[in-house]
Design a protein around this nucleic acid. Structure first.
Length: 421
RNA sequence: CGGGAUGUAGCAUAAUGGUAGUGUACGCGGUUUGGGACCGUGUGGCCCGGGUUCGAUUCCCGGCUUCCCGACCA
């Protein structure tokens, strides 16, 4: 991508009302645009990050047997009345409206009811189970207070997977597999080290549910962490004093701020009972399906990565989700010979499948470096008169600031075969 | 939803009961060219409604917006 053609621009200052670090940097760098409280546009660069996060999520969900689908946001009340989740008294986050044709309609804030209803048509026998279906889809929640930039919005993407099992054993196996897959996802996003599988209260069906909490000063949540054991518990569990089961004591836990980047729940037969989702076991008896739900918010994950990895100069993307692997910064481009030279390098890199953002603008070096730092691509390749004369390019690793000088061939060898390209 | 703030140009800010200044960004001309350089010049602005007043961006009332704290948060 040529930066000169990118319609977004960087800016030196963030809007004064945006205090969250993630949103400040993403706004300044032109990844997102704020439309209203709790609703952001994902601009070309920002959307690429989201897409790459989604790809990682898809790969890990598919690897544990997930099948992707897509359900509508529009919801009719009658379905939700069956589980008593339509009324404003029970659920206060509905966006509700009227159909022009008559009748009420709501915007989905989750999809348990919807997918359970769908599965009534496809689940009949124990032979149909287990099955796992997911989507990456827009959720709407009428939050009283949106806040923290892209971390808590009223409209947001969510990867929600639902599991349907015949037996507790099937369910527990999948639950653990999904928990492992979640940690793989957060590792691939570059926030695995700070992310803890956190015990939360489980509701009616199980002792615990689990949240995935990433330790961060900007977090809204508070968790109690045992870094030695690699686990955390949230406040409600701490109060319930069943810590002994987890092999930790209250005194051994460190109180930390955190961001909830994912959660997994055992739902038991709550929804299958309410909506009549049963299967026939080997004796021909109707048995309610055991369900679970598993969520990750891609945009919140993106904000978490920014919060955790950014430095004073700007965003630092891990290679796994950066919009481009290389930021090719061309200098001295007013010189026709230099421009040809750098254009040639850009073309060669692209021909080798390298993902490149090419700063082909005729600006002063300082401005280009500052922009490059702010945008946060993993590697910056500088091509200038200086590097041309020396026969090598300056390659700077954004995260560490390490600088190397590579010849054109070395550059291709290093980046030409990257799987991420 | 309770409490507290907020609203001036694309963005950041200043002053003011007599229609607003600066920085940045943007346009033009020129000097520059490895860390947001400089000179000249130009474009562009008081959230909405009502009230007080000769006159309101300014004061008052209401609304809306946005932010923060709390509550809430599969």
């Amino acid at each position: 991508m040529r930066q000169s053609k990118l319609f977004t621009k960087t800016r030196k200052e963030a809007p004064s009302d945006e205090v969250a670090k993630n949103a400040q940097l993403l706004l300044r760098a032109g990844y997102i645009y704020k439309n209203m409280a709790g609703a952001y546009t994902f601009l070309p660069l920002g959307l690429q990050v989201i897409e790459r996060i989604n790809t990682i999520i898809r790969e890990e969900m598919d690897a544990i047997g997930g099948q992707e689908m897509h359900m509508p946001s529009l919801q009719e009340p009658s379905l939700w009345e069956k589980t008593d989740r339509w009324s404003d008294e029970n659920v206060d986050v509905w966006f509700k409206s009227e159909l022009a044709a008559g009748g009420a309609v709501g915007l989905a804030w989750t999809h348990e009811e919807v997918i359970t209803e769908i599965m009534r048509q496809y689940v009949a026998s124990y032979k149909d189970l287990p099955l796992f279906a997911y989507q990456i889809q827009t959720k709407f929640r009428n939050e009283i207070r949106a806040k923290s930039g892209i971390m808590r919005t009223r409209e947001f993407w969510m990867k929600d997977l639902y599991s349907f099992c015949a037996t507790e054993e099937q369910h527990n196996d999948f639950y653990e597999a999904c928990a492992d897959a979640y940690m793989k996802i957060f590792n691939r996003l570059g926030i695995g080290e700070q992310t803890y599988k956190t015990f939360a209260s489980g509701g009616a069906f199980t002792k615990f549910s689990h949240e995935f909490q990433t330790l961060a000063e900007a977090g809204e949540d508070v968790v109690y962490v045992s870094k030695a054991k690699g686990i955390a518990v949230n406040e409600e569990v701490l109060e319930e004093a069943d810590l002994s089961e987890l092999g930790v004591t209250k005194d051994g836990l460190e109180k930390c701020k955190s961001i909830e980047v994912g959660n997994i729940f055992s739902l038991g037969t709550k929804f299958s009972d309410a909506l009549g989702l049963t299967y026939k076991d080997e004796s021909g008896t109707d048995v309610p399906v055991i369900m679970g739900s598993y969520g990750i918010g891609p945009a919140r994950a993106m904000g978490t990565v920014v919060d955790l990895l950014a430095d004073e100069k700007g965003i630092v993307w891990p290679e796994s989700i950066a919009p481009y692997q290389i930021h090719l910064v061309g200098l001295n481009l007013d010189d026709a010979e230099m421009r040809d030279y750098v254009e040639g390098l850009y073309t060669s890199l692209r021909n080798r499948g390298v993902s490149v953002l090419f700063d082909d603008r005729d600006l002063r070096p300082g401005e280009k470096f500052a922009d490059s730092d702010l945008l946060g691509m993993p590697y910056r390749v500088v091509a200038s008169k200086k590097t041309k004369e020396s026969g090598s390019f300056e390659v700077v690793t954004r995260a560490t600031g390490d600088t190397r000088y590579l010849t054109e061939e070395e550059l291709y060898a290093d980046f030409g075969a990257t799987a991420d390209a």
